[in-house]
Design a protein around this nucleic acid. Sequence first.
DNA 1: CGCATACCCGTACGAATGCACGGGTAACAC
DNA 2: GTGTTACCCGTGCATTCGTACGGGTATGCG
Lengths: 129, 129
Amino acid sequence: MSSPAAQPAAEHSHPVDPERVAAARARLISHDDAQRLTALLRMLADPTRARIIYALDTVEELCVGDLALALQTSMDATGYALRMLRSAGLVTTRRDGRMVYYRLAADFPEPLREHCLRRLVELSHRAEQ
Amino acid sequence: MSSPAAQPAAEHSHPVDPERVAAARARLISHDDAQRLTALLRMLADPTRARIIYALDTVEELCVGDLALALQTSMDATGYALRMLRSAGLVTTRRDGRMVYYRLAADFPEPLREHCLRRLVELSHRAEQ
DNA sequence: CGCATACCCGTACGAATGCACGGGTAACAC
DNA sequence: GTGTTACCCGTGCATTCGTACGGGTATGCG
C-alpha cells in the first residue's frame, strides 16, 4: 500500500526512515503467524500451566488430583489448565480405571521446555527490579 | 488471579502416588517464581509486541510512527505495546528532536529472541491443527 | 510568534481469560 | 443395587488486557 517513490522534499513525513521501514516489513512475520506463535506462547504464560509443565517434566506422568496436590492449587484450576494444554496438543492422557494420567506430549517442543522455562527462571530472578 | 500462596486443595482423599507428588513438589518452582516467569513470557505472548521485537531485531531502531507503519497497526496500539515493553525493560528509548527511537535493550534475553521467537515460528506453523 | 507534528498519558469500553460452582458420567467398593 | 471417588463439562462471574478516544507537552517550521 505504500508508494515510497523516494521522498521529494518533505511535507508530511509519515515514513521518516523509509528504508528501515521497508527492511523491517520485508522480514516481519505476518499477523497470522504472529497470532499462531503468540497463541502457543500464551499457553506457557500462565503460572498454573507453567508449573504443570515443570511438574510433568520431572515426573513423567501424574493424575489430576495428585497434580493439584503437588502444585497446591485447586482441582478446578488444575483441571482447567490441563484441558487447555490438552486442546493445544501439549499434553496427552492415559486412562487407568477412574484415574486419568497426564504427561507431556511426545512432540512437545523442546526449545519451549529448555529455553522458555528452565533458562528463563534465572532471568526472571535477575530481571526483578 | 493469584491466590496468596500455600492453600492445600482441601477436598481430596489421599495422594494416589505420594512419591511422584513429593518428587514433583521438590523440584517445582514456587508460585512467586512462576508469576515472575510468566510475566516475562506474557510480554512476548501478544501479536503486536512480538512483531515489534521482530522488527527491532532486524533494524536496530525505529521511531513509533515508522514502527506502526511497518507493522501496519495503529499508532495507539504500537505506542501502548512499546510502553509495556519499556516498563518491562525489554526496549530502550533515544530522543532526537520530536522523534523517539526505540531499540531492543542491551540486556535483552538472547534465548527469548532466538528460541521463543525465531525457532517457534516454524513450530507454530506445523502445530497448526 | 502561532501552528502542525510526534509522542505521551489518563480514561473508557469491548473482549478475552482464569477460576469456582453445579451437574453429569464412568469406575470401583460394599 | 446404593454410595463414593475421580474426572469432565457447561455456565457465570470477576478480573485482566488491548485498543480507541481525547487532552496534554515538547519540538520544529514558517
